[in-house]
Each structure stands twice: as structure tokens, then as C-alpha cells.
Design a protein around this nucleic acid. Structure first.
Lengths: 245, 245
DNA sequence: AAGTGGTCTAGACCACTTG
DNA sequence: AAGTGGTCTAGACCACTTT
């Protein structure tokens, strides 16, 4: 566990907003890393020189935003991107009967390419900037269900290789977080129905032109900064995209 | 505006959870109605005989859950289901360029029928219980885009008629709330891609078998009680289903 | 038993909206 | 100017986890 030191002053309207910014800054800088525990509340309130209620207010919001995790009796830690977290927040595919299963991922292609305007726009970078493109097939109960095309900017993932990608021990987002200090906090998805094109049809073992879901996701890290653009084709013959309102 | 009286004791683990339950009870009973303002915080904390911080804690959670609305300098009121609220929480359809527009709704059919097992299961009622079934076509910029099939249990909407339904002044959920004391707080949606069947194809002016979205929504009121089951068919040729993670 | 977060108190003062 | 919610303080005590 890292030693914890509060970073210097960060502007903001309210005191507790300042505290939040300081905590986020320390996470971004890697002063406290995913899985690390923060000092306890009394200690933190002394370091930041605020009342404990104010400190708690800041921590509460970070917990609500998914940045921190609190456990009564144990302490407050920086959220770790693990399988459970992934299934809860990012994997919206469930069987007709509502059961949800962690998919197995097979990587088909890994390439370093120049971004076309479409993915560049989604990632908020310039057309022609270098990105990694990864193609995956996700299977549930050994049946291929999802075909993913992932675009991530090279400058945020310096040194990424196909081997590193495939040898990851947990989810893709855990890899981003552990090896590249990129914590995916949320995203926006655009879903529509399309006729399945040839490549996806072959991979998902369905006929050409079958109705499938197309899901475009922009995943972002701190400050709503785009970190990944992902286009998924989903065979919804036996599965649904499930979301809460 | 109604006079406000706190209801009697409601069990719960924490004090602020009790306060929440009491407030919800008063809303369910119609003691305070949508749009009504509650007494101010100091007054409420006296009535419930708790510190103002505890009262605020309860109110904060109800605001987070979408039950109450607070406005600094004005007061705290019971959330009104209006167009803005509907567009924000329940209408997930946006044009390719991201613009969102309030749809115009045309009612095609209004019938009182007995629930088949499928919709009964979704609504948590017995097969054969009486429900209203309403068929609507929703248009954006005068082009039909969505075909809705709505099922609502009769016992929650006693006295509903086609005329009342069509003559509503705002959204369908506003009608539920104003005329039947049914406040829709949230829901779960299951989305998949299907081949468009004849009726929907005719109504949406697309060819038979075109890939379209099917969205099944169970909308619930207090205590996660199902209040409405809705099946939507969406032509996503020019629109997306957009959601945040 | 010691240490953590969770709840609750009883105020003070600030920022915003309205008459 | 009066009334509202928003922020902040400086504690006390409770519930839970770990050693």
C-alpha cells in the first residue's frame, strides 16, 4: 500500500468539492492506487483541516460516483475494476430468463492503426492519430454471442501489446486500470438494430442479414475524458440488453 | 396545496430511514400531492423530532430516488411527472446527431382485456386479471418511429377510459400520477433486435422483416411495484436508443 | 479490544428566490 | 427583508470487522 499524502490546493466552489478534487487528483497521480485503503476519516479530516462531516460528504459523493468503496469496520479504498464491478456496470447482456454469466473472450486481431474520422470523433482525438484496434468474440456457455471492435488511443496505453492484452488476469477494464492507470468510470451507449454483415455473421454463427444489435460505447475516465470506443454486435436470439431507468 | 401532517410511526433500522418511510407514506396516501411543497426543513425536523441533519439525510435520499425535488430558496416539493422529467428518465430515443425531441403520440386502440400469462407475469398479477391495453404510434418530426403496446392493471387505474387517456394534458406518466395517484419512479428495460412483423411494419412505414428494436419495459412505482408493462418496436434507421453507464 | 465507517445531534452561517 | 435550502462545524455514540 502506498503512503498517502494530500495533494496541494485545488479550486472549487464548496469546501467538500475541493476535497473531492484533491482525492481524485491523488488517484489520478497514482498517490493512492486501486485497491489501496485511504487513511481513516478522522485522520483525513485532520489532514484536509475540515470537519469530519465535510470530509464524509466528499467521500460519499465519490462512493456514489463509483470511485471509492467504503466498508464499515474495514475502511475506504479506491475501487478496483474487477469482474463483479464489470458485470454490474458494463456488461448488460442477460439471458431471456434473466441470468447473467461472465463471458469468455477470444482475441482475433490486434493492430496499431491510424484512426479514421468516425472513431477519432468518438474518442475526441484527431483523425489519423495512432490507436490500437482489437477485435474480440465473446462467448456465453461456449456459444459466440458478441463481436467487439475496440479502439483505444495509443498515447493513453503506451506499450500495450497483443501479448499483454491477451495475458491479462482479469477484465479488459482491470487491465486498463492496473497497467495504464486508466480507470473507466462510466460511458454512453447508443443501441440500434441492424442487419448483420458478413464478418460478424460468420463469427457469431448466424445467417447474413439476421437482425442484431449494434452497440456503440464511448467509455470515459476522470473528467469525462474518452478512453475507449467500442462497437459491439450482439446476437439477441437468446439474450437481451438489460438496463434500469 | 394540501395541509401536511406527518403519518404515524413506521418501522425501520435507522432514524432517517423511518423518516423516509413516513414521507413516502404521506405521498402514497395523497397527504402531500405531486407539485405540493413540504414544510421547510426546520419545521419538518421539529415535527419528526429529529435534528435537521437527520431530516436532510432522509430528504436527500428521496431527491436522489427522484421522489422529491429541492430548489434552494424555494422549497422542497413532490416530483411532478412532466415532459422534462419524462424525456430525461424514460425517453431514450435520440436522433443520430444526438438531438432529442418530444414525440407526438397517436392512440390506435384502447381495450379492456384479460391479461395473458406473458403480460401478467411482467406485471406481477394473475393470468386472466383485467388490464387495459393501449396501442400507440409515436412520431418524431411527423414521421412514425415507435409502436407502443401498453398494459396496465385495471385495479390501479379504476375509471380510465379512452377519452381520459387521449385527453390528457401532458405525458402518460403524468396522467397516471395526476388522475390515479400512481407515480412511476423507475423501470427495467430489455432490448433486442427482431425482424419487424406486419402490423408494426405497416404503422412505421417500413418493409416487413426490417431489423427493428424491441424494448420491453416494466415500470414500477413505490416499493418496486409494477404499474405498467410496455412493449415498444422502434425503427432505428435514423434514431438510437441512448443510455448512460 | 481496537479501529473502522455509520448515524445523529444542535447549532451557525451562506446562497438563492421571492414579495 | 424574509424565507428557503446548502454548507460546515465539533463533537457523541453505535455497528461492524479484524486481531
Amino acid at each position: 500500500m502506498s503512503e498517502y499524502f494530500a495533494s496541494s490546493f485545488v479550486k472549487g466552489n464548496s469546501l467538500y468539492i475541493n476535497i473531492k478534487s484533491k482525492l481524485i487528483e491523488d488517484i489520478k497521480q497514482g498517490v493512492v492506487r486501486p485497491g489501496d485503503f485511504l487513511p481513516n476519516e478522522r485522520e483525513l479530516s485532520k489532514r484536509f483541516d475540515v470537519a469530519i462531516g465535510t470530509l464524509r460528504r466528499a467521500v460519499e459523493e465519490l462512493v456514489a460516483e463509483g470511485v471509492l468503496v467504503r466498508q464499515q469496520g474495514r475502511g475506504t479504498s479506491v475501487r478496483l475494476q474487477d469482474r463483479d464491478q464489470f458485470m454490474f456496470q458494463f456488461f448488460k447482456i442477460a439471458a431471456r430468463d434473466g441470468t447473467r454469466e461472465f463471458p469468455s473472450v477470444k482475441t482475433l486481431e490486434f493492430a496499431k492503426i491510424r484512426a479514421k474520422s468516425y472513431e477519432a470523433k468518438a474518442l475526441g482525438i484527431q483523425t489519423g492519430q495512432t490507436v490500437f484496434r482489437v477485435l474480440n468474440v465473446l462467448s456465453i456457455s461456449n456459444k459466440p454471442v458478441i463481436f467487439d471492435k475496440i479502439f483505444i488511443p495509443e498515447f493513453m496505453f503506451l506499450g500495450l501489446s497483443r501479448k499483454k492484452f491477451e495475458d491479462r488476469s482479469s477484465t479488459i477494464y482491470a487491465l486498463y486500470q492496473n497497467d495504464f492507470c486508466v480507470t473507466v468510470l462510466g460511458g454512453v451507449e447508443r443501441v440500434r438494430a441492424i442487419d448483420c454483415e458478413k464478418k460478424a455473421a460468420d463469427l457469431l454463427n448466424i445467417e447474413l442479414g439476421h437482425s442484431v444489435l449494434s452497440i456503440e460505447r464511448v467509455a470515459y475516465t476522470f473528467g469525462q475524458k474518452p478512453a475507449e470506443f467500442r462497437v459491439s454486435v450482439v446476437n439477441t436470439s437468446h439474450f437481451d440488453y438489460v438496463t434500469s431507468l
